[in-house]
C-alpha cells in the first residue's frame, strides 16, 4: 500500500534501507531511487518510490500564480 507519509532513511545496508516513521521502522528496497541516509522518502509495498524534493514550496507558489492568471 502507498504511504503518503514521509519517512526518514536512517540506515542503508546494500539494497535495503531502514526507514523511520515517527519511531516505526520498516525495511524498504532502494532499487528505484538514488538515496542517502537522512533523506525523506515515499514508500510503497516495501520499496522507496521517490525521495522528497526540496523545491516544492517555490513550485507550488509558481503554480498558484499561473492558476490565478488563468482564471
Amino acid at each position: 500500500m502507498c504511504v503518503a507519509l514521509p519517512g526518514k532513511v536512517i540506515e542503508i545496508n546494500d539494497r535495503t534501507a531502514t526507514v523511520d516513521f515517527s519511531g516505526n521502522q520498516v525495511k524498504a528496497d532502494t532499487g528505484l531511487v538514488s538515496v542517502k541516509e537522512g533523506d525523506y522518502v515515499l514508500v510503497h509495498a516495501g520499496c522507496i518510490m521517490q525521495v522528497m524534493r526540496k523545491e516544492e514550496a517555490e513550485e507550488l507558489e509558481e503554480l498558484f500564480r499561473e492558476v490565478e492568471e488563468n482564471a
Binding site: 504511504v3 503518503a4 507519509l5 516513521f21 515517527s22 516505526n24
Partner: peptide
C-alpha cells in the same frame, strides 16, 4: 508513533 503506525 501510533499516528504514523496507523498511517503506514
Amino acid at each position: 508513533q501510533v499516528r504514523d503506525f496507523c498511517g503506514l
